[in-house]
Design a protein around this nucleic acid. Sequence first.
DNA 1: TTGAGCTCACTTTTT
DNA 2: GTGAGCTCAA
Length: 754
Amino acid sequence: MDLLSDLTPSQREAVTHINGPILVLAGAGSGKTRVITRRVAHLLEAGIPAGSILAVTFTNKAAGEMRERIEALVPDSKVWVGTFHGICARLLRKYAKLVGLDPAFSIYDQNDRRRAVKDLMDIVGWDVPGWTPERIESLISRAKNDLVRPEAWRNRATDHKDALLARIYEAYEERLQAASAVDFDDLLVHMVAILKNHKDVRADLDRRFRYILVDEYQDTNLAQYAIVRALSVDHANLCVTGDPDQSIYGWRGADLANILEFERDYPGSRVVTLQENYRSTKNILAVADHLIQHNLHRKPKSLLTDNPRGAPVELTIYPRETDEAEGVAGRIAGLVRNGEFGYSDIAVFCRMTALTRAFEQAFRVARIPYQIIGGVAFYERQEVKDVLGYLNLIVNPRDDLAFLRAVNVPPRGLGKASVDALTNEARAQGVPLLTLARKAWTVSGLKEKAARAFDDFARLIDDLAALRDHSAEEVIVQMVARTGYRKHLAEDLKAGEDRQANLDELVAAAREFDQVHAGSSIQDFLAEITLASPIDRWEQDTGAVTLMTLHAAKGLEFPAVFIVALEDNILPHSRGNENLKELEEERRLLFVGITRARRELYLSRCCLRSFRGQQQATLASRFLSELPGEIMEVRDLSEMGQEYGRPRPAWFGRSNPPRRPEPRPSAPPTFRLTTAAALGTPASGAPAAGPVDLDSLRPGVSVVHPEYGLGKIVAVDGAGPNRKGRVSFVVGPERTFVLAKSPLRAVGRGGKTP
DNA sequence: TTGAGCTCACTTTTT
DNA sequence: GTGAGCTCAA
């Protein structure tokens, strides 16, 4: 295939440039991905061996897509494509010893890190109020990405708080090292250390990866920059692509200077600018352009397109968040009904995952299929983490966190007291928990029963560890068989079936991994899934509307896009309101969202939003006033509150409504559930019509749930206030409820109708 | 030691 | 309003 014929002169220039550094400044929708893949293909065609090409992307999904596209152009090429983290993980397996790690090191995810930080806060006696583990965790993460070591914190600490912080950071690092574990950031940090301290390795890798491509270069942080820099000393055939206007990861340490100063870093570099947009209509681009012009710290550039003008961008102002959700749902239903778009052509973007709830509900009611990106990732589910705990411990016996996760799952009578006794002794001796568990009877203060249980557990792990070189699937199946884990899951009446399904899915994922990566190890499987993100599992063509955050939307495009909740303190986020730098990043975030849209763009906000369960008046996002209102279609429905039901205060929808009075104190919880009438109170909070007879909720009875709609009880279990019922809904999966606490009401025979 | 209630924090954004 | 994690009772 001709790689160049359908490219513009600038694109062609970027594709055909082979030796020496090149910066491709690619505006949104300017065909950047196409340029990168073609460039790789062109390099291969020019006779560059695939093994000397390294392509770095930001997400696994982007990596997968690029691999696919390269594959389509040049089948069977062995180009290295991956994320910074993934690539570093692979390299680190090889060079682990250089940084004092076992090659079988574990990768700790955010959860693991949080547990460790929390634990260390207790150990150092954290006493500064107002600090959550998350906050400390993100400081540590930020330090690592900025290549700041614990010693620097210690030396700089001037007050009590900073000294404690330094101790936590230091102890955290020690703990990771002792467990031969790394967190996400360490993958980069260790790599940087290796490249810096081992000249031979650096030179080898520089030579090996003669041609490097880095996508989304505007989002690289110092650690990533250092890695790229170290690999481009002797062979600076470095091609970076990016768009400063799409830098949205400053909070994670991304430094715009990396891209802005590329030419200074790499003298003699070529710069190619891709300006023309092939994605969006003129109207959409005009809105994006107006907005981004408000960023002061920016190289001026404009977005051009030959695409048609298209429909005007619509801004709708709704009274309440439920109205917004319903309005968007209605609009989507209309677009699909007209045959204009399919569900998978449509995406809804919001600033925070927490905002998706109202939309989920509205979509469910409107029978609109949807998928959410984000939220609890599959691999963070409890049952999945349980199994992964076992796998991690098998692979890396020093992984204490994995030990703690696995040791009492399923419950084998090892509670806090026993585990604490073991942990304390292990700390004192400086040995891994699993090692000590093998001779648990030597631990003082441990009951014989507990010692036996530890011993059994250690044997179990040893037995499973014998399978270390088998496939991940095999080990999981064995683990489940030997521990009765499935039975344990089944005991959870409420979510047991979902959990078993998740377990099956994990097994399937392991099987698939074994098939795709023949000859790979359990470690590889663990690394892959630990580094996986929700967006990686997303597929565009599932016939469902996609609901995701603006951050997740980067790099994607949709024919129709809705951006919701354009309100101050949401977008821009409250923390982004404080300084100009963060405000500009928030603006770029909205810019990224707008430029995802191909044909139609719908913006919306509402005037009253419930926050933490409380209704609060909102302010319009300041960004709305930065858009070209004259070419947009603005629909203000905020004055139409009457149509949405309840009458509302006169100030409704005005800019600065008075605060609502404090809500009346709710009845004490003990009182709340003592009467049958209270149990049956509908969600609206209106007084119950009368006592609800729990006995009317029995198998076969039709019920209605305010959220999930109509269903039928298929099973009940237990008695009294804990009686649980399983309901099969007309739409959606079966769900289980504690009947006395659920808002379920029987309909038809035997039930009370409102 | 375990389970069930209760409290409380959640609201950035992700590898 | 809600889920996760924690404390307290059995």
